[in-house]
Amino acid sequence: MTDNEATVAAVDWEAYERQFEGALKEVTSLDDLEKLRVEYLGRKSALAQALRDVRDRETGMRLNALRAKLQAGVDSCAGRLQAAALERELREEQLDVTLPGEHIPRGNYHLLTQIRREVEDIFLGLGYQVVDGDEVEDAWHLFDALNMGPAHVTRSPLHTLYLNGDIVLRTETSPSQIRVMEETKPPVYMVSLGRVYRRDTVDPTHFPIFHQVEGLAVDRGITLADLKGTLLHLARALFGEDREVRFATDFFPFTEPSMQASVSCFLCGGAGCRVCKESGWIEMGGSGVVDPNVLVNVGYDPEEVSGFAFGLGLERIAMLRHGVPDLRMFWENDLRFLRQF
């Protein structure tokens, strides 16, 4: 037995480890940790010396394992202390988090675009196509095909803007329905949205240009009940799930029967208020079962297919839902107004 062997044997490695663990628990700074590491793992530590002197394989493996274990203890403690130190440091860097962020320029969709998209999406979800018809139309597609005879009052230049002869600025988006039906066989499920033109004098509720959405469904077995259900769905999507819709008889040349649809007031819930003029109901727009003459005009057989149609003004939806008091604001493009929505 050599001296060295005696040294290796003389140390109680279990106690060595216990002492290390005990001391490690007391460590509160990286400096202390370094001292501890030097004492137990440093070049001059008992463990390092023993590892240098060890000769038998078994003891060597045991001491190596011990060294690895102690080193892991040091590392994990160091990690903890560093994290705590960083945390302390960061807490010093206090910022006034209530100050404004860096300015990012913000764009904005026009309110009418927002409503247009809402309506489009509702009908896309119901399986309708969205059609952008032309704004300049001929009298056949705007009037005759829609069952408005030569004497119909809307045809008068007092109501409609004429370009020349039979060419007019559309007063509703429905001529695009005629064009789609002329070009395709039923079934047709479509909405057309866009600008329409009327000879109206500008005031808070009139502008010669406004936006309409008109819907058309033509298929086998379409009923007036389907129209009621579709407009109920639309009204609830636009004005809230609790809305009710009611219908009152009306007259339009292109539908028979024709009805005015009203939605229960979203503001007062039907009790009566300023918005609904104390009636509890707000008019949505005209609707009805497609007149058989219209179907015949596009070459459809009214005995085979039936349909419904409806029309609403986008401005009206916007004004009602958001309380916009004056239609002209949509066209003035004052950023203070635009950015509200």
Partner: peptide, 23 residues
């Protein structure tokens, strides 16, 4: 129909051949 508008129920068309998508 106009004498019984309130009796008519709320249904949706039984679509067969259409699906909605933007161009």
């Amino acid at each position: 129909g106009r004498f019984r508008l309130d009796e008519i129920s709320f249904t949706l068309p039984l679509r067969r051949e259409m699906f909605g998508r933007l161009t």
